[in-house]
Amino acid sequence: MSSENNISLSPSSICHYLTKYSFFGYLACRLMTIVETRALSKTFRSGLIRSSRVEALKAVDLSVTRGEIFGLLGPNGAGKTTFVKILLSIAYPTSGDAQVFGHKLGAIHIRKKSGYLPENHRYPPFLTGLQTLLLFGGLHGLKGPSLMQKARSLLERVGLKDWMNVKIKRYSKGMLQRLGMAQALLNNPELLFLDEPTDGVDPVGRKEIRDVLKDLRAQGATIFLNSHLLSEVELICDRVAILDKGQVLRVGTISDITAPQLEYEIQVVTPLPQRLVDSIGLVAKNVRAEGKLLHVAVPDTRALNQVIDLLRRDGIFIETLTAKRASLEDYFIQVLKSGEAT
């Protein structure tokens, strides 16, 4: 369990309070907002004769605050990739609009200060890893020894030092992903878009990528992450949005989303009297006693300790205490189900 989902002072929560309590706070927040979309919609039309329409995004309103790691979650085809592509002007919105760094969509400035790791990215196979970085660095306007140095240090950082002079067609999937990560960091982006960054990467590599992301956040970068890997999102994201069929179903911090559902299993040595179970029911929810096993759902750690106090006051010995926190995954599936129902 991560410790980050207790009371967090993430940029987004600071922003939330600033906005709530003062006009200047509101202004400051506007400056802190790095991505803001208003009713952003995208309909793909394809086929001339039997034309088909796909509404990939339906009036999406989202804002991302400077310095946070924002996760966009959703099932396949939800519109996550489309959303990012529109922000980078790789695709164009059908209606609605958006601002990135305070610039209107399409401004070259946005791409200058952003990094992007696309999903299923493919590099010219005749280049080596180092040549690839030199090419894309050149497209960012970098050149000379500083570009060379940057490329080499990034390759080292993503663990491709020994592979930098090998042709890309010989790279494995995880190595390509690492190269993609390095490519996205060439211009020291203030805003980094990552589409499934850990796709195909081994567990050690995933941890390394998470560490890189945490470093970047510490340096003040904003990270926008598209993912289905909820357990991973849970480990690093400050805030998440859940997107389904082009619509935003929920937005919030991970702790906002999952904290009300902290659940525990307490194994005791002697069966519990009903009277005790009833009094526990006053501080906890979903109280169920099955022989020597007690299930409780509590809003926070304080309530959990109250339950323990009650048990101990009755002289009950506790053998084990197991957290059954509802994971983001449980929540994700639950939200998608209720989304379908509506």
């Binding site: 592509k85 980078l88 002007s89 400035h109 791409r111 696309p118 299923n120 990215h121 590099y123 894309f136």
Partner: peptide, 18 residues
């Protein structure tokens, strides 16, 4: 076409060039 292949187009189009 090689610049416009899926997966490659995104890389080039996300760079600050018109």
């Amino acid at each position: 076409p090689s610049m416009l292949e899926k997966g490659t187009a995104e890389l080039f189009l996300s760079k600050p060039l018109s």
